[in-house]
Simulated assay, not measured.
Amino acid sequence: MQLFDVYPLFDITPVRAEGSFVRDEKGHQYLDLYGGHAVISIGHSHPHYVSKITEQLRQIGFYSNSVKIPQQQELAEKLATLCGYPDYNLFLINSGAEAIENALKVASFHTGRKKVIAFTGSFHGRTSAAVAFTDDATLRAPLNTGHEAIFLPFNDAAALNQVTNPEEICAVIVEGIQGVGGVQVPTESFLQQLRQFCNQHGIVLILDEIQSGYGRSGKFFAHQHAGVQADIITMAKGMGNGFPVGGLLLHPRFKARYGLLGTTFGGNYLACAAAIAVLEVMQEENLMQKAAETGNYLMQELHKLEGLKEVRGLGLMIGIEMPFPVAELRKALLQEHRIFTGSASDKNTLRVLPALNLKKEEADLFLKAFTEALSKVPAHMIV
């Protein structure tokens, strides 16, 4: 049996990882500045994380949500102390796309509407509803065409004036920072005007913080830089540091009823242990502040380099836009310097998404390697 071909694969087989480094089966060590799509939030194989999951597995690893699982409430309480939404309700699931699907479902049940505003450059997942509001028509199957999506220009609040019959809009969905779209940061005024628009017309504001949340931007959620409050927040990726965990934070006005939402694996013992460990490490090691400080340092140093078109981001969610496609540059960083970086839907943008406890000396390793790789780019490609 062969595996279904999904991604183009690097010819690397990681077998061990610790902190910000990954080792392959040949013993080569790589600096991980991508974290497996921004998943590794507290570093690979963090001792507290490993201990927490191991201890839980020795007791009980799984039972369904037909019984009380005390770790779910423990997770909710720890999350409440850090995230800035202490009065919201938590629904635990397994992944980011699943979080998006359920957020849209709750919003539609609440409003009785079905139209959704999304934005150019957006990426919300590959499942049925999530992909319908992702700005990439090549990912949608015919069954996705039944969803009523209205795509507006990102970071252009004036485009809201083009919306006819806003009373028919169920939700506005927007990323705290666009990730796949090339690390595009929404302006504070854009998010603030989205909030006002939703308030005015009884629309649910969904903040997709799957990639940009959990301290990556220097605040727990990226939209908090704008001082706005979301109605529903979607979470995953860094939430479990590699263990599949996702969740929704729901405003108290969304009332639960049996059968509306459900999950078999969501919020299981091991998932909760992983998510609790992440929050404990984030708090104990002050990782939000570290992400802000290290991210600021990286961006300041990158701004000093010639040949870059733009450096964007907040904290340790950084996009480096070049005046040429970055595929060969990323390849050089990986093969010659053994550094993992990420791509984006914009072929000219390289993404940097390391663990939040990335050390300054590790950031310097990247800066040195990036400078060397950039010096080998033919001059005619750098405008």
Rank of each mutant, 00 (worst) to 15 (best):
S343Q: 12
D5Q: 14
L329C: 12
P8A: 10
M1Y: 03
G266A: 07
A344L: 09
S51M: 11
L191D: 06
Y34W: 04
E167D: 10
F324R: 02
Q192H: 07
L207A: 04
N65F: 10
F370D: 03
S66Y: 12
G247E: 05
G181L: 04
L365K: 11
F21D: 00
L75G: 00
I150T: 10
V6M: 09
E280G: 04
D346E: 14
L3M: 12
P325Y: 10
G19K: 13
Q178E: 10
N268P: 00
G342H: 05
H251P: 00
V163C: 02
T134N: 09
V281L: 03
G242S: 15
E336A: 10
G84D: 05
V106C: 10
L333G: 02
T264F: 06
Q229H: 13
G36I: 05
I203A: 01
G84M: 06
H124A: 04
I382C: 15
V326Y: 02
A332S: 14
T294H: 10
H147E: 09
F62Y: 15
Y258D: 09
N155P: 02
A132R: 00
Y85H: 11
H37L: 15
A373C: 15
P325K: 14
H337G: 06
K304C: 14
F119R: 01
D208E: 14
R338G: 03
G218E: 02
L250T: 11
L334I: 07
V15H: 03
E285D: 13
T127D: 08
A107L: 07
L79V: 02
N165S: 07
A222W: 05
L191F: 12
G213Y: 15
H28D: 09
N89D: 14
V15K: 05
G19R: 13
L31C: 06
L279N: 01
F123M: 03
A292L: 12
E293Q: 14
L305G: 04
H110N: 10
R253Q: 12
F197K: 02
F324E: 04
R253N: 10
H303K: 15
E188Q: 14
K368A: 07
G313M: 03
P354L: 02
R126F: 05
G35P: 06
S122D: 04
H46I: 07
H110A: 11
E167H: 08
A157Q: 08
E306S: 15
R58C: 03
T371M: 08
Q289P: 04
L152K: 09
D364V: 06
I60V: 15
A137S: 15
G176P: 01
G121R: 01
A379V: 07
